[in-house]
């Protein structure tokens, strides 16, 4: 089903919109801070921003509820926060704090709390989709109903074999899976026409026998409506849902990349609009927030981020002497000879 799925989600009213905006703003400002720390040499490894993807990601995080499964990808800071990640978890992971969820073993976007349905991505693109499918199959086998599993991927990630295998599996099993494809036009430097040759990625849904939806991801109203609807359809037994969201990556692939390969015309075109700015204008126009309220929100958000970063910067780094160098949960089964 393409573009024709009935819209059952209520028309946008102030609260989901304003709440989504808060997550978007928090994600944007948090990532700007992380980018600054990176430029100042305070972060090891890469920093990858979700700039331009916040409306889509926040809408997804907000459409999910406790008990659902969420496997975010590289550019889903907003969705992670909306799904319940604390700012400090993100900061601790980037800064490698020993107290963070990843304890310095993992960095940047490779974080999560699988025990809470918040799966922790591996780098290999496409790998999370089948894992979410398995989570949903387990729920079914355990007799639990009502949960949805959502995960995200980029335009480039659709080229992987894993993507194909997992979607086919999800379709066969009619799983309540929501796959959000953020088509931000580039996979690192590679433009869409070097990743796929179909008219529109959403056409792939036909091939898998699942429902597909398009959304303009610069438009928060549209994101809340389309993503919310897809999540509801998955939840109410309509099988896997594919959402193809159109947007532009408003940053480099990572902060090391100036993205000089993105043409100016594309940046100036509708797809290059900044969802955060558009949402801000809408809030003002609709009288849902005043300029003063927006300013206060921004200041409070910045303060929260600064305080969190300051806290984490005082936290201990991982200590190799205290580190448990064992990758097994059952330590008695570790190969002690090689573990020496």
């Amino acid at each position: 089903m393409l573009d024709t799925a009935p819209v059952t989600h209520p028309a946008t009213v102030r609260e989901p919109f304003a709440q989504a905006y808060r997550w978007m703003l928090l994600a944007r400002l948090l990532e700007e801070k992380l980018a600054n720390l990176y430029r100042g040499g305070k972060i090891n490894g890469g920093v990858f921003l979700g700039k331009g993807q916040e409306a889509l990601s926040a809408s997804l995080g907000m459409s999910l509820r406790k008990g659902d499964i969420f496997a975010p990808l590289i550019r889903d800071q907003a969705g992670r926060l909306a799904f319940g990640e604390e700012v400090i978890e993100a900061v601790r992971t980037y800064l490698g704090s020993r107290l963070g969820p990843m304890r310095g073993r993992e960095g940047n976007v490779h974080r999560g709390r699988p025990q809470d349905g918040y799966y922790a991505m591996i780098s290999h693109l496409g790998a999370m989709i089948s894992v979410v499918c398995g989570g949903l199959m387990a729920r079914r086998l355990k007799g639990e109903t009502g949960a949805v599993g959502a995960t995200c991927i980029g335009d480039g990630g659709t080229s992987t074999g894993s993507f194909h295998e997992a979607l086919n599996l999800a379709a066969i099993e009619k799983l309540p899976l929501v796959l959000v494809i953020a088509n931000n036009q580039f996979a690192y430097s590679t433009p869409n026409h070097r990743e796929f040759a179909c008219r529109d990625l959403v056409d792939k849904a036909i091939g898998y026998g699942i429902e597909g939806h398009n959304v303009d991801a610069t438009d928060l109203d549209a994101c809340l409506r389309v993503v919310g609807n897809a999540v509801e359809r998955a939840r109410s037994g309509h099988g896997p849902q594919m959402i193809v969201a159109n947007l532009l990556r408003l940053a480099g692939h990572g902060e090391h990349d100036d993205a000089g390969y993105i043409p100016q015309e594309l940046k100036d075109s509708p797809v290059g609009r900044d969802c955060l700015k558009l949402a801000e204008c809408a809030l003002l126009e609709r009288g849902w927030m005043s300029a003063a309220e927006l300013e206060t929100l921004r200041e409070e958000t910045l303060r929260q981020i600064e305080e969190t970063v300051a806290t984490v910067q005082r936290e201990p780094a991982p200590d190799p002497d205290q580190e448990n160098w064992c990758a097994l949960s059952n330590e008695s089964l570790d190969d002690l000879f090689v573990a020496r």
């Binding site: 090891n44 490698g96 073993r105 993992e106 960095g107 780094a317 991982p318 190799p320 990758a327 090689v338």
Partner: peptide, 12 residues
């Protein structure tokens, strides 16, 4: 190398 996945933090 040690018998675990390769850790992120430079200390580790």
């Amino acid at each position: 190398a040690k018998n675990t996945p390769i850790p992120f933090h430079p200390n580790l």
